[in-house]
Simulated scan of single mutants.
Amino acid sequence: MRAAWDEVYWLFGCSLIAEEARLYAEAGTDPDHPWRPHRVVERVEEARDAISLVLEPVDGHILPHRTGQYVAVAVDLPDGTRQPRQYTISSASGSAALRVTVKRVRGSDGAPDGQVSTWLHENAHVGTVLDVSQPAGDLLLDDSDDALVLISAGIGITPVAAIVDDLAQRRPDRPVHLFHVDREPETHALVADVRDRAQRLNDVRALTWYSASEAEGSAVRSGRMDLADVELPQTARVFLCGPLPFMQAIRGALVARGIAPERIEYEVFGPDRWARQPKSGAA
């Protein structure tokens, strides 16, 4: 029995090694040197404590990516440590450069500030060279005709921005529902970018909630996101991105309204401690 399990593990390990090699080959990356230098060619102040960095490879070789993927960015901190962090590519595939949007993490209740996000906000300017990994991630935009429901909170808007950018270029006819919640307009990153590209879509419905400010306009509401009275197509594909408690609550609400669990995708950066398909639809 032990020999049989050894064979299973060996075959599984070989499969993973082969898949890793394939990904490195597709990206033109040396597996012994997975980090590739990218230069910041543009920096945009998106919102309070949120910036976008447009990155181009120093060697001119573009990293191919699919809409919805992320990259890791590694920086050398003042204490001598080297720290990587993952950031969604907030622009569509096919562009000559990668755009990442970084929220500055400020510590509270005794927790320290985010080391890498703080470093990037203070040091990443046009001309700065950063080490960037090959793109990865499986929260990918498909090419079906199903309606899309894109639900985000805070900096979770980054994959939504990439998806809307892609649809505006390739599939403006695909029905899209955009739901986002933020603290206030001043913290709402990429809002102008998403609105501009959404205007190019033929069938789009958008609604925003601000939890700490008064609402203005028919498409803006105050308080927490509430989808109870919002029209939702039962056969839509749903993308969730935001803090884990937010996604758990929204997923529970969607399942309660009849959206099949397998049609709900989500993105968690770091260890995923939430099962892909919880036993019940409750948050």
Rank of each mutant, 00 (worst) to 15 (best):
V105H: 11
I51N: 04
D30A: 13
H61V: 15
V105L: 06
D79V: 02
R106K: 15
E45A: 10
T101F: 03
S52I: 11
E20N: 06
A72F: 04
D49M: 03
S108H: 10
A47D: 01
T29G: 00
G107I: 09
E20F: 04
L11A: 08
A92L: 03
G94K: 09
D109H: 13
V105D: 14
E20Q: 11
P57Y: 04
R104V: 13
R66A: 04
E26D: 11
S52F: 03
R39V: 15
L23N: 14
G107P: 10
S108V: 13
R104A: 10
E19R: 14
D76N: 07
V102I: 14
A25E: 06
R99V: 08
A97D: 09
E19P: 02
G68C: 10
K103C: 02
R104E: 10
S91N: 15
G28E: 03
I17W: 04
W10P: 00
V58W: 05
V102D: 12
S90T: 01
D59S: 02
A47M: 02
A18F: 06
A96D: 11
L77Q: 08
A96R: 09
F12I: 02
L16S: 12
L16N: 13
A97S: 15
R104T: 15
I17S: 01
S90E: 09
E42G: 08
Q86K: 13
I62C: 13
S93I: 00
A50W: 00
A50G: 00
R39A: 11
G13D: 09
Q86S: 15
V58A: 10
V102K: 14
V44H: 05
P84S: 07
W35L: 12
S90Y: 07
A27Y: 05
T101W: 05
G107Y: 13
V102A: 12
P31A: 06
V102G: 12
D32Q: 06
A97I: 07
S95P: 02
C14F: 03
H65F: 15
H65S: 06
Y24C: 12
P31K: 04
G28S: 04
E19M: 10
R82M: 06
R48P: 09
I17E: 04
V105C: 04
D49Y: 11
V71N: 01
S93G: 15
S15L: 05
V75C: 10
G60H: 06
V75D: 13
D30Y: 13
G13T: 05
V73Y: 11
P37H: 00
V73L: 07
D59A: 07
S95I: 01
I51S: 06
R36I: 09
T67C: 11
R43H: 14
T29D: 02
V105P: 04
V71R: 02
S52C: 08
V44I: 12
A92P: 00
S52E: 05
S93R: 15
D49N: 14
Y24S: 12
I17F: 01
D30S: 14
Y24L: 11
R106D: 01
R106G: 07
E42H: 14
V54L: 08
G94M: 05
R106E: 04
Y87K: 00
R48F: 12
A18G: 08
T101A: 06
L16I: 11
V75L: 09
V73I: 12
P78Y: 01
V40K: 15
G68I: 00
A21K: 02
T29P: 00
I89L: 15
L55P: 02
V58Y: 09
